[in-house]
Design a protein around this nucleic acid. Structure first.
Length: 925
RNA sequence: GCGGAUGUGGCGAAAUUGGUAGACGCACUAGAUUUAGGUUCUAGCGCCGUGAGGCGUGGGGGUUCGAGUCCCUCCAUCCGCACCA
């Protein structure tokens, strides 16, 4: 062959790498390890689009580079293969989701392999495979068998809790547990029957059953986690979500809330993601205060971050869901309150969120006593107070809180100003902190001092205590779905949950006739007849959420075939943390939080040796699609060209981007053939053609803007695709897919090829000694390429390669000593062409994958003389060349003799001459 | 409202510690070669100006001999969270 032709060798080398197991890795204590991980994909039916490989290419470059640098690199791939779309498809067609999933994975792997990734496919994991989910179920059981010891700040086995109960009773522990736990002595504990003991333990376990208010999505027939709900709609499908109380398995992530925040500090993640996690966990410090209801023995506990403003409290508000309302409300107000609660209940979450500005509420008729001032204030109910945050009770301070201020104005409640300087202000909430006034024993203190004093006072009076509050709530772990991991639990006759015994694991998904709920509303697993533990006990019928498997898959890659443990001790000790994790930012508060939680738990229990799973995290940007649009004239069958559309009333329609050429001109015949609705369409042209409009948006099937990487590989080759996706711009930035620049990259590969082999197929490589120019060109590129991988600036390495190849071509350099190193540094980006040239032109036997990355040598980069730019009063005017060792003083004298310098200084003696060695001379006149 | 990020030619974008802004690629223009066409090669390509020169990194101000880079301030766009007490 004479010309660069990717089709002739790309499949050949892919097969060669595969057959020779070149990417297989094993634990090797003699080598430093490096773990490069991509967020594994959900294998959707649509296959890959060009956006998927962006991150995969970047991580592949990193792993190939690290390998060449002598690291033992773990770079696996797998599939997050439980999920809703396969199940929806199963409901429609009756086909088992496993079949669909298997087919989709086949498509994905086929596409991935065409791009030349260096995955060790022997380590592939699939979350829906029983050999994998056996261990997901095992981790669930470990969580069930554990509780959180606040004093030790870690999880401990439940057996140790029982031991404490038996010796010291409930007073012996400081644990994270359900709010409504009861106190008991050791004797009392021993006196409880088995059911009672189990009931109590359930309040302490890290996974537990609870009657919880959940996000119920009727259209999907399942509950959703908070991060799966956006604006009151389900993230997948966009169906309405409502609040409902249901018995659910829960994960006590709140036990880890503080550690999840604290540990962020030490992680090499972007500030944006860290901040998102902090906000999601939502830690706030403050205190709880008890407000005694007048004429009743009920106490209402309010949470506040601003106890300093206690003298500004002019009313107290309850959330409409608060369970004590009916006991508090007076006869006269009962009707009004009931009506208000009824309306609030019927408003969907979505309506409530959409309508934040609207003020509403109702007086209960009751009064409560301010615990620090003794003052009586009215008690209201309003839906701006959330039942799920804090205690569902708010002490309102209209003079320092915006919502309280609005509310007080609306209902004509008093406003007491407690911060100096706000007395005359129309809106006193504009000043949040300052010196306290009108505040009794707090007068004269600053807000921060007053917070401490007020809390101390509350503690002293026994009416409150300091308290840290979190926004995050325990995660709902049950899904009323088929295609997920069965929860490995059965129920005894008394209804007590028990773990399925180890010998019975994995608890595999049973066959069902249909993937829909049963007639009595049980989840699909309820359709499995004869599916009973030990032939008689009912299994748990819900399955685990999508995030279960993905919360630990990165550990399984280390030891994917282990049948004795979820991961072997030796493997996890060696591979340890993921060194480099790459994926989309959409998982910032879901997957990345749950994974950290499980990893931390497994660390607490001594199963693994590292607390945090992902040392460095990078979020690649999205590759957006460029959709093509046509314009239908309203109520006609005519379509008007983009430039003329403003003269008509038009509807915009998406059409397949394949029907449009590079100049946005429409293939009219193609469109007519594409869809029946367009068969008789008429077109209003401009300049003899129909011009389409375009819009940049997310790539999706429904917008007909998906670009399949297979097409690009077919036309340009995998190497060109890889280089081009990197060349497109910074990794972390989103950018539209645009094929226009790809020719430049393809041209670069042809030029590279021509350094080795001429048009007649003759190998040009020779053994001549390289000269300084050639060595300089090579070594600056080695330096740049190495730094770029470390900084993940792949987009600037590609130009550096181009420049180097251009320079070598200009020098007609085909010297082995230069080209060998050049191939190695390009090989992580373009593995196929470099492998081909490595063998064919350089005559190597072994794969380039096993080569050693060259180190650059400074001696080739330093100059013997330096060209100093000369600036006069800060403006560049000329350049002067000097030997490197010329003394500074001599340069200063010499530079003044220069003709150009004399012109600009007009012969005057300069005030100052600044010489920055190796850089610049600046003359100040 | 709170938090995070970004703003540089016609376009994608480069620019160690402040030191010749626009590397590299696309598009465009002119020329050469070859051709049926693509390809390849050479030169030009921020704006104004014939020129010398002047002006230019979202706007305004500051520090400095010198600012895309540092400081203050305003504006625009994108993303995340949002009645969180």
């Amino acid at each position: 062959m004479s010309e660069y032709n990717h089709k002739e060798f790309e499949p050949k080398w892919q097969q060669y790498w595969n057959e020779n197991n070149l990417y297989k890795v094993t634990v090797d204590p003699n080598k430093p390890k490096y773990y490069v991980l991509d967020m594994f994909p959900y294998p959707s039916g649509a296959g890959l689009h060009v956006g998927h490989p962006l991150g995969y290419i970047a991580s592949d470059i990193v792993s190939r580079y690290k390998r060449l640098k002598g690291f033992n690199v773990l770079h696996p791939m797998g599939f997050d293969s439980f999920g809703l779309p396969a199940e929806q498809y199963a409901i429609e067609t009756g086909q088992h989701p496993a079949v669909t999933t298997e087919a989709n994975i086949g498509t994905f792997k086929g596409q991935l392999n065409k791009i030349g990734f260096s995955y060790d496919w022997d380590r592939e994991v699939r979350t829906s495979d029983p050999s994998f989910y056996k261990w997901t179920q095992w981790i669930f059981q470990q969580l069930f068998q554990a509780w959180y010891d606040v004093d030790a700040d870690k999880a401990r086995p439940i057996a140790e809790l029982i031991e404490i109960f038996e010796t010291k009773g409930s007073a012996g522990v400081n644990a994270v547990c359900a709010a409504e736990t009861v106190a008991f002595t050791a004797e009392e504990w021993k006196g409880f029957n088995k059911e009672r003991q189990e009931e109590i333990l359930l309040d302490y376990r890290l996974t537990y059953l609870d009657e919880a208010v959940v996000n119920w999505c009727p259209a999907l027939g399942t509950v959703l986690a908070n991060d799966e709900v956006k604006d009151g709609l389900s993230e997948r499908g966009g169906h309405p979500v409502e609040r409902r109380k249901m018995k659910q398995w829960m994960m006590r992530i709140t036990a880890y809330a503080d550690r999840l925040i604290r540990n962020l500090e030490g992680l090499d993640w972007s500030d944006a993601v860290k901040e998102m996690q902090r906000n999601w966990i939502g830690k706030s410090r403050g205190c709880e205060l008890d407000f005694q209801v007048k004429g009743s023995d009920i106490k209402l506990t309010a949470f506040t971050t601003r106890p300093d403003t206690i003298f500004g409290v002019t009313y107290v508000v309850l959330a409409p869901e608060h369970e004590l309302i009916s006991e508090l409300v007076t006869e006269e107000q009962k009707a009004a309150v009931d009506e208000y609660i009824e309306v609030a209940k019927n408003r969907s979450e979505r309506e409530r969120q959409a309508d934040v500005k609207h003020v509403s509420g109702v007086f209960t008729g009751a009064y409560v006593v301010n615990p620090l001032t003794g003052e009586e204030v009215p008690l209201w109910v309003a839906d701006y107070v959330l039942a799920g945050y804090g205690t569902g009770v708010v002490m309102a301070v209209p003079s320092s809180d915006d919502r309280d201020f609005r509310f007080a104005n609306h209902f004509d409640l008093p406003i007491v100003r407690v911060i100096e300087g706000t007395e005359e202000m129309e809106d006193p909430t504009e000043v949040k902190k300052g010196k306290m006034i009108n505040s009794g024993f707090l007068d004269g203190l600053t807000s921060d001092e007053a917070i401490k004093v007020a809390i101390d006072k509350a503690v002293e009076l026994g009416v409150g205590e300091a308290k840290v509050n979190y926004r995050i709530r325990d995660a709902v772990f049950s899904r009323q779905r088929y295609w997920g991991e069965p929860v490995p639990v059965y129920y005894s006759e008394e209804g007590i949950p028990h773990l399925v015994e180890a010998e019975q694991m994995p608890l595999e998904l049973p066959a069902v006739d249909e993937y829909l709920p049963t007639a009595d509303g049980d989840p699909p697993l309820g359709r499995a007849t004869d599916w009973k533990y030990d032939g008689k006990y009912a299994y748990e019928l819900t399955t685990m959420p999508g995030w279960a498997g993905s919360s630990w898959y990165f550990l399984r890659y280390m030891d994917p075939k282990n049948e004795e443990a979820f991961v072997g001790k030796e493997a996890v000790a060696y591979w340890n943390q993921v060194d480099f994790y790459l994926g989309g930012t959409e998982h910032a508060t879901g997957h990345l939080l749950y994974s950290r939680f499980w990893n931390m738990f497994l660390y607490d229990m001594g199963f693994i040796g590292h607390e945090e799973p992902f040392k460095k995290l990078v979020n690649q940007g999205m590759i957006q699609g460029r959709s093509s649009l046509i314009y239908k004239v309203k109520d006609t069958n005519q379509y008007v060209s983009h430039g003329l559309k403003d003269q008509y009333e038009v509807q915009t329609k998406h059409i397949d981007i394949k029907l449009v050429n590079a100049n946005d001109e429409l293939d009219i015949e193609g469109l007519k053939a594409w869809r029946a609705d367009y068969a008789d369409a008429e077109f209003i042209l401009e300049d003899g053609a129909y011009k389409c409009g375009y819009v940049v948006e997310k790539m999706s099937k429904s917008k007909y803007n998906v670009v399949n990487p297979d097409e690009v590989v077919e036309k340009y080759g995998a190497d060109t695709l890889r280089l081009y996706e990197m060349f497109l711009g910074p990794l972390e930035q989103s950018k539209p897919w645009n094929i226009q620049g790809i020719d430049g990259v393809a041209k670069f590969l042809r030029k590279l090829w021509k350094l080795f082999i001429d048009d007649n197929g003759k190998v040009l490589v020779n053994d001549k000694e390289p000269n300084d120019k050639e060595l300089k060109s090579l070594h600056k590129t080695i330096k740049k390429a190495g730094e770029d991988v470390e900084n993940l600036s792949f987009n600037t390495s590609v130009p550096a390669f181009m420049v180097c190849v251009n320079e070598l071509a200009a020098l007609k350099c085909s010297k082995r000593a230069i080209l060998e190193d050049l191939l190695v540094i390009i090989s992580p980006y373009a593995p196929h062409i470099t492998e081909e040239l490595w063998h064919v032109a350089l005559g190597k036997e072994d794969s380039i994958v096993n080569a050693t990355y060259p180190t650059h040598e400074e001696k080739y980069l330093v100059e013997s003389s330096h060209e100093y730019p000369v600036s006069i009063n800060g403006k560049m005017r000329t350049k002067i060349s000097y030997p490197l060792d010329m003394p500074k003083g001599d340069i200063e004298v010499d530079v003044l003799k220069d003709e150009v310098v004399q012109k600009w200084t007009e012969g005057k003696t300069p005030k100052k001459i600044i010489v920055v060695p190796g850089r610049i001379i600046n003359i100040v006149v």
